[in-house]
Simulated assay, not measured.
Amino acid sequence: MRIPPLYRHPVWQRFFAGAAVGGCISWLVFLFMFGTIQQKNSTIIERQAIRIKELNGYIQILEEDYQKLNQKNEDMLTIQEIEVKIQNFERYGIKDRLGIYKAEESVKEDLRSLIAKDLTTVYKNKEVIKKTVENKTLNINGKQYRLIVKELYFYTTISLVLEMKLAD
């Protein structure tokens, strides 16, 4: 097998020469277009990187301010209200809801000094609050009852869930 003698025909020589020159020119056009596109993309990426750094700095400043405000608001939290709920009074046959209401109001009155106090200060003195409530003796329908603190929740509202017990 041999290569056909195309070098003798000028038409084929011009075709292959044109293909080679066209390939080189198209390659140069491709490199130019690709280079300009890459140049645009790299400048866009640089601008976006700078913008990201600026926004990250801005976010960090906002987060610091947000944390400072949260800390300040936490420090400013005060007790606004006291809720008292007495449970298991049915166990002792007390049907007098008014007596239970008066007992709840009496406990609220004992704890009224906690209103407008700082939440952290009140929380640190939770044992004193428990002792204050548990040392209280209630007189309902001629019988003496003591209260036991079952649940005690602190936030802007102090919630007490109490249980009744006959006094000894």
Rank of each mutant, 00 (worst) to 15 (best):
residue 163 E to T: 09
residue 93 G to A: 04
residue 83 E to K: 14
residue 146 R to K: 10
residue 150 K to F: 08
residue 80 Q to R: 09
residue 122 V to I: 15
residue 74 E to C: 04
residue 130 K to G: 02
residue 93 G to R: 06
residue 29 V to I: 15
residue 52 I to N: 08
residue 11 V to T: 07
residue 123 Y to H: 07
residue 92 Y to L: 09
residue 79 I to L: 05
residue 89 F to S: 02
residue 53 K to F: 03
residue 122 V to F: 11
residue 132 T to G: 07
residue 28 L to Q: 05
residue 132 T to K: 15
residue 166 L to M: 09
residue 120 T to I: 15
residue 156 T to M: 05
residue 107 V to A: 02
residue 95 K to R: 07
residue 139 N to Q: 13
residue 121 T to I: 13
residue 101 Y to S: 08
residue 129 I to V: 06
residue 133 V to D: 00
residue 27 W to H: 07
residue 64 E to D: 12
residue 63 E to A: 08
residue 55 L to V: 04
residue 44 I to S: 07
residue 107 V to M: 05
residue 152 L to G: 00
residue 101 Y to P: 01
residue 135 N to S: 15
residue 141 N to E: 15
residue 130 K to D: 00
residue 117 K to S: 14
residue 112 R to D: 04
residue 92 Y to K: 06
residue 93 G to M: 03
residue 99 G to C: 08
residue 139 N to A: 09
residue 112 R to E: 11
residue 38 Q to S: 08
residue 127 E to I: 13
residue 62 L to R: 03
residue 8 R to Q: 10
residue 144 Q to T: 13
residue 93 G to H: 02
residue 160 L to C: 04
residue 49 A to G: 04
residue 109 E to Q: 10
residue 109 E to L: 10
residue 116 A to N: 09
residue 146 R to W: 04
residue 150 K to D: 11
residue 159 S to G: 05
residue 18 G to E: 12
residue 107 V to F: 03
residue 167 A to Q: 12
residue 60 Q to K: 14
residue 58 Y to G: 04
residue 26 S to R: 04
residue 102 K to R: 05
residue 48 Q to R: 11
residue 41 N to P: 01
residue 34 F to M: 08
residue 49 A to K: 12
residue 30 F to Y: 15
residue 74 E to S: 09
residue 8 R to W: 10
residue 25 I to K: 02
residue 168 D to Q: 09
residue 5 P to L: 12
residue 109 E to P: 01
residue 118 D to H: 12
residue 127 E to N: 12
residue 159 S to W: 11
residue 85 K to L: 13
residue 121 T to R: 13
residue 22 G to F: 08
residue 146 R to F: 09
residue 140 I to F: 02
residue 71 Q to H: 14
residue 81 E to V: 06
residue 125 N to H: 10
residue 94 I to C: 00
residue 18 G to C: 10
residue 9 H to Q: 06
residue 7 Y to H: 08
residue 149 V to H: 00
residue 151 E to H: 06
residue 122 V to Q: 07
residue 77 L to G: 02
residue 128 V to S: 14
residue 5 P to W: 07
residue 25 I to C: 06
residue 116 A to D: 10
residue 153 Y to A: 05
residue 99 G to P: 03
residue 121 T to A: 15
residue 15 F to K: 09
residue 39 Q to T: 07
residue 148 I to V: 14
residue 106 S to P: 04
residue 108 K to M: 08
residue 101 Y to E: 12
residue 93 G to S: 03
